[in-house]
C-alpha cells in the first residue's frame, strides 16, 4: 500500500485528478464525507488531505510514502526527502515586493516581512545584504503599506493583490511549482510501486507541456 499526502485545496484536487488519470483512482475521495483516509485496496493506494505546509512533514517522517507540495515549502523547511518530479502545476514565483517605485538604496538594514524567513535569509545572505526579518503569518501585503517593513518576500501568482494595493514586484527569487516528494526509506522498500507512480505522472506532465 502506498500512502499519499495530498495538499488540501485546489492544487490537491488537480493532483488527485492526475493520480486518477494515471490509474490510481479512489472514487470515495470525491464523496462528501467526514472520512480522513481514502483507500483503494485493489490499486494499493490510499490518500489523505493535509494542510499544504504539512505535506513535507508527513512524508519526511514516513506517515506518507509520497506527497505533493510546493517548491516554496521545500525551500523553506528543507525536508530530507527525494524530490522526484516537477508536476508543472500550481505555478507561481517567490518574489520580493515593495511599494511602487521602491528602491533599495543599501544604506540601512532592509526590513523584510515574510512567512518564508529561511528563503528570505538565504536570498539576502547570497547578496551580502543586511536584513531584519519580520516573521508574519498572513496578510503580508499590509506590512510595507503600514511601514512595518520596506519589502515583503512572498508568493506571487498573478500580481493582482499587489497591484490593487499599490505594490509591485521588485525582483523574482525563484519560480515555484508543485513537486512529487518521496520518503527516502519508503523508496528503498517500495521502489517499484513508487517508480511506477512517478513514471505515470511524468507521462501526464509531458503530455500537458
Amino acid at each position: 500500500m502506498i500512502n499519499v499526502a495530498l495538499p488540501k485545496g485546489r492544487l490537491g484536487e488537480k493532483v488527485y485528478k492526475m493520480f486518477a488519470n494515471s490509474g490510481y483512482e479512489c472514487p470515495s475521495i470525491l464523496e462528501n464525507s467526514r472520512k480522513l483516509i481514502f483507500e483503494n485496496e485493489e490499486k494499493g493506494i490510499s490518500f489523505f488531505w493535509v494542510k499544504p505546509s504539512d505535506v513535507s512533514i508527513y512524508v519526511e517522517r514516513g506517515a506518507a510514502d509520497i506527497g505533493v507540495c510546493g517548491k516554496d515549502i521545500l525551500l523553506e523547511y528543507e525536508p530530507d526527502v527525494y524530490e522526484m518530479l516537477d508536476l508543472n502545476i500550481g505555478k507561481c514565483r517567490m518574489a520580493v515586493a515593495g511599494k511602487k517605485g521602491f528602491h533599495d538604496n543599501n544604506v540601512a538594514t532592509l526590513r523584510v516581512a515574510t512567512k518564508f524567513s529561511n528563503i528570505a535569509k538565504k536570498y539576502y545572505a547570497g547578496k551580502c545584504r543586511d536584513i531584519d526579518i519580520i516573521k508574519l503569518n498572513g496578510s503580508i501585503e499590509l506590512a510595507p503599506i503600514l511601514d512595518l517593513s520596506d519589502v515583503i518576500v512572498d508568493i506571487v501568482e498573478t500580481g493582482t493583490t499587489l497591484k490593487e494595493n499599490d505594490l509591485e514586484v521588485v525582483e523574482t527569487i525563484v519560480p515555484i511549482s508543485a513537486r512529487l516528494i518521496v520518503n527516502k526509506s519508503s523508496f528503498k522498500f517500495k521502489t517499484e510501486q513508487i517508480e511506477n507512480i512517478a513514471k505515470e505522472l511524468k507521462a501526464q506532465v509531458e503530455a500537458n507541456d
Partner: peptide
Amino acid sequence: GYINGVCEC
C-alpha cells in the same frame, strides 16, 4: 542503511 518501518536512515 534502512530498516523497513523506520522512516530515516
